[in-house]
Amino acid sequence: MSAAPDHTPTFARLSLADRLSLSAPYLLVPALVAIGFLVIGAPSSWLTLTVSGLAMGMMIFIMASGLTLVFGLMDIINFGHGAFISLGAFMGVSVLFWLSSWTGAPSLVLNVAAVLLAILAAMVFTGAIGWAFERVIVRPVYGSHLKQILITVGGLIVLEQAIHVVWGAEEIYLNRPEALRGSITFGNSALERYRILAVVIGLAIFVAMRLVLRRTKIGLIVRAGVQNGEMVEALGYRLKLVFIGVFIAGSALAGLGGVMWALYEQVITAGMGESMMILIFIVVIIGGLGSIEGAFIGAILVGLLQNYVAFLEPKVALISNIGLMTAILLWRPQGMMPVVKAK
């Protein structure tokens, strides 16, 4: 066989500025935390707000992760995603009410078991609804963003009205299970137990998603499909099945996020998912379309900023995340770590 040319090409050594630019998104979180510490002053308030921001960020990440994958892999703008959050919350809360003897018992095992069952039921339910939603609503409008927006908004309205029919139009209040109520004291800071649990679950979901995407063949197919779906098919993989799987997984994650948000807010309404969609879209856009890592960092930034600003200047909190999105898009118009380019 003829040998390749006798050369051993190497990559150029990146300058410090280039390396900083590459890792800049990862540095934004510690930078924001440090700025928060300097501006807030009181370490106990700062720690409480930081944990609260991280918890909020993790829950937003869980809700946004499915949407960014669907966006990236399938080029689908799904405004109906918010309905999956609401449906997950209602199904999860129904299970928690049904298991009220477990949630009311002073037993960590029973409390956690009830929450896990609620999460499982919500994920199975929203995954199944997601499967039907993809078949009936999304499949006819592949390739047309305008039609996707119109029909998925219609699907959102239908699902919200279905919630009214099944669970009633009134908001439903709930109490967290016994073991997840109250706070633990760390120094002078009061850290809510539930928020710590939310951080742990969010991190676990992020690590699990990274492992699946980076270490498994199905993850490879998804990552490759985000970049060049045609070539994935040409290599022999049925991308449509992967699409459906990702849509179901994204819907199930929205359901999980819905249960967690319900336990966080302790009140649920049919419109709760819809009202979260602005934050979720901000996270998907600033993270970069199709990027799980970008959504993770974006969600943490949104959660931290919202909590810090709400403490320092409550009136500004409403626009802080829009400001964050504007700043990041001025810096990186495609978002922090885009996997697919915005069209």
């Binding site: 490879l220 990552r223 490759a224 970049q227 060049n228 070539m231 290599l235 996997v339």
Partner: peptide, 12 residues
């Protein structure tokens, strides 16, 4: 697949 490594391209 430019975001995947050479190895990952070959695994696929």
């Amino acid at each position: 697949f430019s975001d995947l490594t050479v190895e990952e391209n070959m695994i696929l």
